[in-house]
Amino acid sequence: MAKSLLIISRQSPWSGPSAREALDIALAGGAFDLPLGLLFLDDGVLQLAPAQQPAAVQQKDLAANLQALPLFGVESLYASARSLQERGLEPRALTLAVEVLDDAALIALIDRYDQVITL
């Protein structure tokens, strides 16, 4: 059995390559059927904010790419309730169906995976 990997994505889509790199790890791992989870933490939850316009700054559409995760076999998607709340984001308005977890649940989540990387 392959080791499970939790990817913690904690940068906004606009702050540099981190958000895309985290997604690329998830897509590549998913294409190879690795047991993967993806957690949006801190500014990472901003990747899920609705109606962003990447074309305005000549960037690729990360939000569209994120929608492909379930097709790549990455269905364990989580977001930090605290990070959402701090940024005034409504869980219902997010562009991706994620499980919203409080801090205690996040501790249990990290514990459950064999490997964790934070980008």
Binding site: I8, S18, I110, Y113, D114, Q115, V116, I117, T118, L119
Partner: peptide
Amino acid sequence: FDKVNSWL
């Protein structure tokens, strides 16, 4: 430790 989580 069982695993290492680097906060990159």
